[in-house]
Structures are given as C-alpha cells and as structure tokens.
Design a protein around this nucleic acid. Structure first.
Lengths: 162, 162
DNA sequence: CGATTTAGTTATGTCAATTAACTATTAATC
DNA sequence: GATTAATAGTTAATTGACATAACTAAATCG
C-alpha cells in the first residue's frame, strides 16, 4: 500500500459540477483557482459522461484502481484512500460486489475484517476504464499540444503534492 | 454583460471536496483529470477557509464579482453566470441584501424583474475579497515559481475556453 | 474471563440542490 | 380590448449525498 487516490467523489451534483459557464464578465479571470475550477469541471463532466456508459461513477473507478494496486486491503484503508467515511464504503463496495467486479474475503486471522480483491472481470473492466479515462483526458484537453499536456500535468502534481 | 464566471459552488461538501488524500497507490497518477481534481480541491478548500472569515462562500464571492462587472443585471442572468438554477439565486441574493452588500431594484419598464447592483459596502468588500482570493491562489501554489504560475494559468484557460 | 478497542454495518439527521407549483406582470392573439 | 400564453421571481416539496451516532461481532488487554 502506498498513497491515496481520490478520483472519488460520489456526489458532484449538477450544480456543484455545473457552476461553470462563462456568460458574464467577472474579473475573476486572473485567478488560478477560478481557471482551475472551470477546467476541472470540464474534465470531470466529460469523465462522468463516459463512465456512465458503464454505470459507474468516478469514485467507483477510483476504488477499482486502488483495489487493483493494493489487493487485500481493508475497507478502512479504502475509505482513507478515497477520503470518504467508512459508512460510505459499504454501498460502494456492495455495488462493485453485486456486479462481480470485486469481492470481500473474510480474513483468516481476524474475522472482523475483510480483504478486498478485484475479480477477473473487475481487472478486465479496469483496464478498459483506464483507457476510457485516458481518452477522456485527451479530448478534454484537445486544445493543448502534447508538450503542453505534459507540462500541465507536471505543474498540477507540483501543486497538490506540496 | 459578457461572459459567465462560476466560482460558484454552493455545496462542495466535505467529502465532495475532501475526496483527495493520497494514502494508497492507484495508478491514476498520469491522468490530468486526477491531478487537476486534487489540485483544484486544494485551492478550493484554501479559498473556502479564507472566505469563511467573512462568512461567505465561493458562490457568493463570484456573485459579487459578476454583479460588479454587470451592474443592473437580472436574477436570471446571474443564475446563468453562476450556472445555478434560478431558485438558488433567491437565498443567495437575500443573504447579500441582508448584509447590505447588494440591492434589488425594481425595473421601471418591466415590473416583474429586478436590476441587481452592489452597494458601496459591497464594492468595498469585493475589493478586499479579490485580494484575499489572490493571496489564497498564491499560497496554494507556493511550490511554483512566478513563471510556472503564469504558464499554469495560461494552460488552464486554454483548456476551459475550448 | 471481563473490559476495552476495532472492523464493519445500520440508522438518523442535515443540508444542498433540482423540480414542480404558484403569483405577478407583460406580451400575444383574435 | 378581453382572453390566453409566456416570463421573472418566489415558494414548496423531493431527492440525494454525506456525516454522526448507535449497534454488532470479534479481537486484544488486564
């Protein structure tokens, strides 16, 4: 196990997400936070749209990716990684389990906890989802050159890793 | 009137906002969308914290900036600019009016609608808020050089303006 | 063993935000 | 010019996400 991943966000309601258009002047145009919010919303909305074809939300996609990289982790770990509260993990995992993408396996030594694993189906779907996410990324940033995309990614990491 | 501004977002609940930590590996680290979400959340949370000293939310700050740049606009315009639904504008404006930051003025020709204006107090506060927002921006991106900030802003605009 | 802590779950409450319903004013139609 | 339709704003009602607290089972500590 290493670091958390949160592409989570269960909600992201229409207005919480929408909130970004551009009809009027606002003198906010020189704020990085403002530009970042608008850009982020654009990317997120695009991803949500694509994932919806698989009846998944970003948080579920994130969960799959985290489980894949940390097989056998416990629900509390997943909660921390997604930055959500433990009770929220329950319906999320129930959903993944009901679709046979992941499984809870009772722990041998400690019968209170579960190890969480991806199923073969889950692994296969995850591979596909990663491509979808990459494609979503790509066409949400179609105004950028390849070099600009790399630079943007570098700068964003520098910001949030600080 | 010109273009919209949405630094709106009424909600941005803890988990909707939180959702970003970094405890486990997730293989999402090369996605711009993932990095952008994490960075954006960091900036947004910082701004929320600072604005809370004035008992304001980002959407209210955005509203003030939009009204300032578009004096006399109608509530429907403001809703569109903030990308929220008209009913949400009511409590938002009520709050601004109750604090004497903005006023609704009955329209001469069309008695159904209002023109919205900032009060002197509102204008003064907005100036201060702009500095707060700029400061928030600055220290949320303290890992960047001045040149990198400019480049980041440029790239973000390119993304969302597309 | 008995008491305390921990993993997971269930239940409850809150708050934001969408949709629908309502009032008033204006515009359109005949 | 009266009736009907459309528009600005508001109020009301529904949904949904999320947090907190209460509960069950199992482990650890003494």
């Amino acid at each position: 196990m290493a670091k958390p991943s949160p592409l989570a966000d269960q909600s992201e309601s229409p207005s919480a997400t929408a909130e970004l258009q551009a009809p009027l002047d606002s003198a906010l145009d020189d704020l990085i936070g403002y530009a970042m919010r608008r850009a982020q919303l654009k990317l997120f909305q695009n991803l949500i749209g694509r994932l919806s074809a698989h009846d998944l939300r970003p948080a579920q996609f994130s969960a799959l990716a985290i489980i894949d990289q940390n097989p056998g982790l416990m629900q509390a770990d997943l909660a921390r990684a997604l930055a959500i509260e433990p009770p929220q993990v329950v319906p999320l995992l129930n959903k993944l389990e009901s679709r046979a993408l992941a499984v809870r396996v009772r722990c041998k030594p400690d019968k209170r906890s579960y190890g969480i694993f991806l199923s073969k189906t889950g692994e296969t779907l995850l591979k596909e989802l990663k491509q979808i996410a990459a494609q979503s990324d790509f066409d949400s940033t179609s105004a950028l050159t390849g070099g600009e995309r790399e630079e943007l990614l570098r700068l964003l990491k520098k910001v949030y890793q600080d």
